[in-house]
Design a protein around this nucleic acid. Structure first.
Lengths: 352, 352
DNA sequence: CTGTTAGCGCCTTCAA
DNA sequence: TTGAAGGCGCTAACAG
């Protein structure tokens, strides 16, 4: 059973100094003689002393915990994000309290309040709704440093770190263009998420810029199921487009699986691209051409923003967009050639 | 700017009662008149009072947090497990502090110590190594309620909740038998995890029981990469077996992808099964026949065990095995018939 | 450089 | 049923 706890008092007594000196020696913040510091440290070590987090927290006003709220932790994309965050936070000796919002605004509000009440050092959140999340997010941000991750509520004046959706979509459309595609359809998230909005806007812009035909997008949610059903819609409405740009890897994976069931062969009949670069891209068949999010960089940047705001509550809001990288794979490996430069099949090199 | 905090003192003053009465009224544990309780509650409400978690924790010795340690949160299997745990814990108003061990024993020890130091209510851990994790796990279990989940260190006398591996493997081998397989190869985890050990033992037993030929297993780790490389090994060493039982969905997915690259067609040339029932099973092509773990049940049982031990530190250790369910899919949809009963192709019904 | 002292906010024993 | 008071463990003035 739990060995009895040794307190600072015990250390002080054993070391023959006052409790204040012991505290100072151990935290190292204030001036204490080298000798006593060493002595106290040794005694503490010997006694197996560990600070009582609650005592310190009560005094300091916060313990070293950061709250992270994502829609669903079981989604591999958020899994990777949380994984990277955990890594970054650990390097700063911060613990990670995790909470699922289930994509539900009420639940999200409840979790935010909980984190604020626990007086976490800060909150990292992937807001579930681009507008409906506003109140709860703003309220929380008022009480504790908060950074929005990946998605954002535009109206909430908080720090934000995420991928450069515009660049990602441009990379994909450009890639498809090189592969000879002209009729490209978007199957993505509706406007409930900022990522959905931004990717759609970027897509429209890119299509317009290239003077490609404008096809009706199919929009719903970032789910496998949606991808599956969208595949049916597309398969039934022949003629097929040259390519489909999916809102994320999950949708793309659903599309590929669904198209297969309808006898449509990817990439021969239609090319498909994803977004995120999760493990799903490697698993589905054909493997998915996608843009890979720089998970570690994003997490590092988010933590940096959080710590910065901890020190300076009223610093101007950070708005950081990190560039994704194109990863070409089989789902777009079609030997179609652009008007001028014929590209050999299976060539990994990127034509310009 | 954080609105200034209202404390119990404020509530008491505003309500015209002592701080003790206010406390009693709000926690509801002790006897207070109905009237004052209502009154104090109303005042607290009006003032927007929220207990200070640290004050209470300092007093009570613990805050309402539970630590969860998994090898890698980005692995969909652990993602689902954590998701279910979060759900269960929330229902008991417990927060979830998450930590990755990265499958590394030293890291695991460090995280365990951190959780103990934070005086969490309890710890749920998927130990990374069936034997090397012993010291750290036992040490932590000595200080705080701890339940092992999914995998376990046998020597550590703690509560355990996990899937019934024996039953799962039996379901799979039986299914393959019905499909006419006799030469079945195991591609799974080595003995560093209890899940690996148990599944292997169950497999050997099942093969022996049926008098099937004993083939050399290929063992390593629960990773996609291992599945990929094992596929190469198998593809090169013709003749092919009838079927492959993979240690989990990740390995199975790697196998399927790898076999495809080597021109081996699943299930025509060889059938493949998974284990866990993660989303990967639905995504890979052909979709994976696997046994589905009852995630929610497992999580619920784990939390129940934890709470039980919170109340009674010396209760006898719980050892709970929950039954998985077979989910048949395309990766074993081969119209092979057992000697006596011919089974039609694509039949979903389970022969007995 | 070091010791004394005063809380941080809360719960609970002890009295009334 | 209610109030007064102590103390959980820690850190940061404030003295010396």
């Amino acid at each position: 059973m739990a060995r009895d706890t040794v307190t600072l008092r015990d250390v002080a007594d054993a070391a023959g100094v006052s409790i204040a000196t012991a505290s100072r020696a151990l935290t190292g913040k204030n001036r204490v003689s080298k000798a006593t510091t060493a002595h106290v440290s040794r005694v503490a070590e010997r006694l197996g002393y560990r600070v009582n987090v609650f005592g310190r927290a009560l005094r300091e006003g916060t313990d070293g915990a950061v709250g992270v709220i994502v829609p669903v932790i079981s989604n591999p994309f958020y899994g990777q994000l949380v994984h990277s965050l955990e890594e970054q936070l650990r390097e700063h000796s911060l613990e990670l309290i995790i909470a699922d919002s289930h994509g539900d605004v009420a639940r999200e509000r409840e979790r935010l309040r909980m984190l604020v009440q626990r007086r976490v050092e800060g909150i990292v959140i992937v807001p579930s709704d681009a507008s409906a999340s506003l109140d709860a997010v703003a309220e929380a941000a008022d009480d504790v440093p908060l950074v929005q991750l990946d998605r954002r509520v535009e109206e909430a004046p908080t720090d934000f770190v995420g991928v450069d959706n515009e660049r990602g979509i441009a990379l994909l459309v450009n890639h498809l263009g090189e592969r000879g595609a002209t009729e490209i359809v978007l199957v993505a998230s509706d406007d409930t998420t900022s990522a959905g909005r931004e990717r759609r806007a970027a897509f429209d812009r890119e299509i317009a810029r290239r003077g490609l035909p404008v096809l009706e997008p199919i929009l719903d949610r970032f789910t496998l199921e949606f991808g599956l059903s969208a595949a049916g819609t597309i398969a039934r409405s022949r003629p097929l487009p040259d390519a489909i740009v999916a809102g994320d890897d999950l949708i793309a994976t659903g599309l590929i699986t669904g198209l297969k069931r309808h006898g449509v062969v990817v990439p021969r009949d239609v090319m498909v691209t994803g977004f995120d670069g999760t493990m799903l891209a490697d698993i589905c068949d054909p493997a998915l051409t996608t843009v890979v999010q720089p998970f570690d960089q994003i997490a590092a940047e988010a933590v940096r923003a959080l710590l910065r705001r901890t020190k300076q509550r009223d610093a101007p809001a950070i708005y950081s967009r990190l560039a994704p990288a194109l990863r070409e794979s089989m789902s777009t490996a079609r030997p179609l050639a652009p008007p001028d430069t014929p590209a050999p099949a299976g060539d990994d090199a990127q034509a310009s």
